[in-house]
Design a protein around this nucleic acid. Sequence first.
DNA 1: TGTCATTACTCGTCATAACAAGTTCTGGAG
DNA 2: CTCCAGAACTTGTTATGACGAGTAATGACA
Lengths: 253, 253
Amino acid sequence: MVKPQKKPSQLLHVSPVPLYTQIKEILRDRILDGTYQAHEQMPSESVLMNTFGVSRITVRQALGDLQKEGLIFKIHGKGTYVSKPKAFQNIAELQGFGEAMSSMGYETFSRVVSIKSMPAGATVGAKLNAGDSEEIVELRRVRYLNRAPISLDVTYVPKSIGERLAKEDLAHRDVFLILENDYDIALGAAELQIESMLADDYLARQLNVEEGAPVLRIERLTLTADGRPIDFEYLYYRGDAFQYRMRIERSHV
Amino acid sequence: MVKPQKKPSQLLHVSPVPLYTQIKEILRDRILDGTYQAHEQMPSESVLMNTFGVSRITVRQALGDLQKEGLIFKIHGKGTYVSKPKAFQNIAELQGFGEAMSSMGYETFSRVVSIKSMPAGATVGAKLNAGDSEEIVELRRVRYLNRAPISLDVTYVPKSIGERLAKEDLAHRDVFLILENDYDIALGAAELQIESMLADDYLARQLNVEEGAPVLRIERLTLTADGRPIDFEYLYYRGDAFQYRMRIERSHV
DNA sequence: TGTCATTACTCGTCATAACAAGTTCTGGAG
DNA sequence: CTCCAGAACTTGTTATGACGAGTAATGACA
């Protein structure tokens, strides 16, 4: 029997959005607007079942999602509680190189080493969700900080974007900012992978270091807000001259 | 009706560990040992129900947990697939080494190289908000992943905490988890600094690499939830054997 | 008064059942 | 042969029911 609801709220049973999502949103609102105060109580599952007129499974799925978000936590045998509002946003923020440096007051510019169209190949193709033989654009730049070379950036973007980027002032403008401001592409998250390696001959020349010097190698795949990969880069930083800094938050609990 | 199991494996129905956890472990093992190959299919839910002799709810809970761990992903209407092992591991979340690795199903342990009390000194003192001559505890551990040395951790904590830690099972337990669970210290954020360097003689011996091999050097200052520094570490990772992965979000929009 | 068993609450686990909503394949109609 | 409807799969959502396990308050007994 699917009795929609008697007294309770305006849950839509025929809606395209599932019940547990609707309940999750309602509860989240109540937490954020203070209806449920930080660090105590929360109606029990059976109470929520009655107020929303749904089954326990549905309530538990809503609560489970909120727990994953870190908004609430549960204690077996006692109840469900509202977390302290601490863990809101990751301070780990996605920034381009120039963005980060200029916000710290450093003078930067980039020298474009090369920019060319080529087949994606297996590795890059997989990252950018393109076929091996699909044409993409590779952009190589050396970034300078206070006139000293600091990193080599090898950037891969889809051909459509690469051809537009080629016309831009890449020496002074950040790719991230061009994508966002000029092309109206909302950026979402990035996946990073960091490792340590030794400079080979090519890298050593570009970064003006000895061959065999330590280099920080970062692989970065940037995604748009809706999750499509749009920019894949290898960043080779001089190990002696740069430190990658970030701040990360402990999840919930 | 609680029919234990007919043909299937050795699931313990009376065990203190829930069925879905047992199934999760079994499936994770099969993924890690290659029984289920990367990036294609996985038995469907109904197949798993039959093979394990459990209900769909139980299977789904096991699969859901594995998905949260990033080992698998699902496609509505198609099936469940094994993630490519590269597929990030997680997010901008503060985790200890063991925590991160064991959640991926790897076997880890630590060898305590030394643990001693000493004056903080200028650098560490500044990080931990202590006077130069204040006594602090230094803990050196080599972390092993599948029996191979993977990193050297040099940890500095206030004397009061260090003396308690000295009595703990540091070979198998994460300092983060001890602080949170046993000492009731809520952790907040951490500040990281990453750079690339070459292994010196001492590091080379500890990590079993050649002198001059690339090493990832991470400086990490961990703060409690209320912002007090509590743990300052230098982590030296073998550059050839480990990659530091993370996912960060674009802030504003 | 102090101890302990009972009870009533909480969340945790698991079964059975049904339908919805995607995907893929197949077979029949044109 | 092409195209499209439908079957046969998949995962997604939801209901109902039951018992287990942890917590806290009650009340009886010593």
